[in-house]
Design a protein around this nucleic acid. Structure first.
Lengths: 395, 395
DNA sequence: CGATTTCATTCATCATATGAAATAAAAAGA
DNA sequence: TCTTTTTATTTCATATGATGAATGAAATCG
């Protein structure tokens, strides 16, 4: 597996122009030139090529901002110019969909299965079956299928090997290589939190943010880091394990087997565990409380119930301390809190900010903005599409 | 201030070739081609230009690795092709020296003064005087003076403004702009720990390390981060404040005004403060114990003195926990511990590794190598020279 | 000494980017 | 309505930089 060869690996500026169009929506050639810093002549020449190849098209009606001179001709990507398959693997669930050339996604095909019982070949087989079905269903108007992207919970090594995942009992499964052989396509695997970060950073209003941390609250606590405008993933694939930085050295036991991790204060299972020990709550699978159960807990806190309130305050405190370390170490410009767990953000925020102030000198704290970001299930799978289109290099 | 315009801003490959020569010492053209991935024809053409411009030269005698065919002609940088001024500002001390085109440095000119009493204009004046003297003393054989680089303790914003420094009482001093005006040269300011990181990473054997953290133990605890092969400095200039990540929330008071920072367990002043409270030690300026005093403390621990030993163990524990957070968040390939404080590394290491094992899951710990790196005073100033030569962009 | 090997240069060629000029398509003004 | 002005895009000749192929240079090997 070398690169996903789509628009990249082609002359640099061609790729930059495509990315600019993908990012900034329909655009006139002049504006493109301004964005990628090319002369009008060059833009004309390159867009000419791209149009001949069918990758872009002039958008028909849309004449934006009519003014004095010759009107702009808006350009957009041809959605069907190419496509790719996006897969999301999480606990007991596989989702597959078709991604188009603009980064858009089709309807999800979902399959529930007991992932914890899968062998490595069983996993690959399950994935392959769903991918096969998805490929078979690609509408005829689509151009070439250019790659497969996998978003998985857990630790991914070199975009290839799933070192460890909460969804699996097997370890060190190379999921990319067998799929690549089977479908004769480039395949990349990525951590799901990284996908979400890519997806969020893709928003036009966040383009200027060079250093961005996206913290995902949910069953666990994950993070994706964009540093210097690019996804940071340590060569090993590890890193960004925000949930397992420490809050209290002798704190409660975390899933990971260590003590006092942020996650063991802020993760859904932690909140619910503590709530159940003090309140009278149903004992259904305490390791994975349902959305409804968590929502009920938030409501309880919101209505002023002292025990529930203090739980979220405690979580806020832990989160704040974790963020203080993150900010001291990396100094991101912006931290976004998202994931299903944002539902409780309002209940955590005050204590979170208090502990940030307690732990960080003002000069550092001022440099970083922290805010919640609305959660959307599709962020993960959109991220993997964008990552494949953007040209993640393997290795 | 735009860029330091030396070899950069010139056609990309010209710059890459110069950097390759600077990095990998004397090199034949073939090898250069292999390193920067250019055809022999291109290398020939570019090196031809560079030689005409006097930036490189064929090294006279040195014929490395004689073999079968036509012998290689080694190429090296002309040290005198250009020069720059490197300045290091620390508490009560300014050092200035001339940096040559290879990254080498001349004799340091040192001035002791009470930096804490300086006003902003006084600081700039003091710097300017020393720089002026250094410029006046540039040997005639040197080519153009291309820039000024400042390495300073503290928080530097946009390579220009010294937001905060332990050496000063004034805040938010723009030290770069007035010097740039005065000398009509590009000026960049950088954090000293970043300089050290750049300097260390410049070593050929560390070229392959994509993600490197350099932790500096000394009076305080600093860090420089190389991520994705490039120096990470948050847009704000903050970040990499490893010393002020937290170990114990209710721990001792740190210089920074917060509680429980790693630095308040591992910094010289912290060790000496605690030692003095339990041992009978001289009370000379406890905030800045001398090298001799610290060395004596290390000797005490090494000889098995229980109090001193436990101090360093405690420091090791704090360091280990700090590193566990660093590794969880960033997952660097390599962590180097250096700074004058490495003198006590052997006394800290066992406990450091123990707390790392306690705090980090194996999969993460395995990915990162941690080791000491011998301390050398000159690393800082060499780093700023390299950074200026390498083309730090302002902004 | 000639054959072989490795390194370096020359030169014609190709690809890409660009400035200048031309062309296109609208609104504004007379 | 017709011209002028303004802005967008294209055309074209030109410059720049990288490269393959061929050539030349300088050593060792047999």
């Amino acid at each position: 597996m070398d690169k996903i060869d789509l628009d990249h690996s082609q002359p640099l500026n061609r790729h930059r122009i495509l990315q600019a169009v993908r990012l900034h929506g329909p655009l006139a050639r002049v504006d493109l030139g301004a964005i990628v810093a090319l002369s009008p002549a060059s833009v004309s020449s390159i867009t000419g090529d791209l149009m001949r190849d069918g990758l872009i098209r002039e958008v028909p009606g849309k004449d934006a901002g009519r003014g004095r001179g010759r009107p702009k001709v808006m350009i957009e990507l041809t959605p069907t110019a190419a496509c790719m398959i996006a897969v999301k693997l999480s606990i007991n669930r596989i989702e597959v969909t078709l991604g188009d050339f603009t980064g858009g996604i089709g309807p999800l095909q979902v399959r529930a299965l007991n992932t914890l019982e899968l062998t490595d070949s069983g996993l690959v087989e399950a994935l392959a079956e769903m991918i096969e079905a998805c490929i078979a269903a690609i509408p005829s108007e689509f151009g070439p299928l250019t790659g497969i992207g996998l978003a998985v919970q857990g630790l991914v090594h070199k975009h290839e090997t799933l070192v460890w995942s909460p969804a699996l009992t097997v370890r060190n499964v190379n999921i990319a290589a067998p799929l690549a052989r089977r479908f004769h396509l480039p395949v990349i695997a990525m951590n799901d939190a990284d996908c979400i970060a890519v997806s969020i950073r893709h928003r036009p209003e966040l383009q200027a943010v060079e250093n961005l941390a996206v913290v995902m609250l949910g069953a666990g606590v994950g993070m994706g880091l964009i540093l210097g405008g690019k996804l940071h993933s340590a060569s090993s694939g590890a890193g960004a394990e925000f949930g397992h930085t420490k809050y209290q050295l002798d704190g409660p036991l975390c899933h990971c087997g260590r003590r006092g991790c942020i996650e063991s204060f802020v993760g859904d299972y932690a909140l619910y565990r503590d709530a159940r020990s003090m309140l009278d709550l149903p004992n259904t699978d305490a390791l994975h409380p349902s959305d409804d159960q968590m929502q009920a807990l938030v409501e309880l806190a919101r209505s002023g119930h002292p025990v529930a309130t203090s739980l979220f305050q405690q979580a806020g405190r832990a989160l704040g301390y974790g963020l203080s370390n993150l900010i001291a170490l990396i100094g991101p410009d912006l931290v976004l809190i998202t994931g299903s767990g944002v539902r409780g953000y309002a209940e955590m925020e005050d204590e979170m900010r208090r502990s940030l102030e307690e732990a960080l000198v003002d000069t550092l704290l001022e440099q970083t903005e922290i805010r919640a970001y609305p959660w959307d299930e599709d962020l993960t799978i959109r991220g993997i599409v964008l990552q494949v289109l953007g040209g993640a290099k393997a290795g």
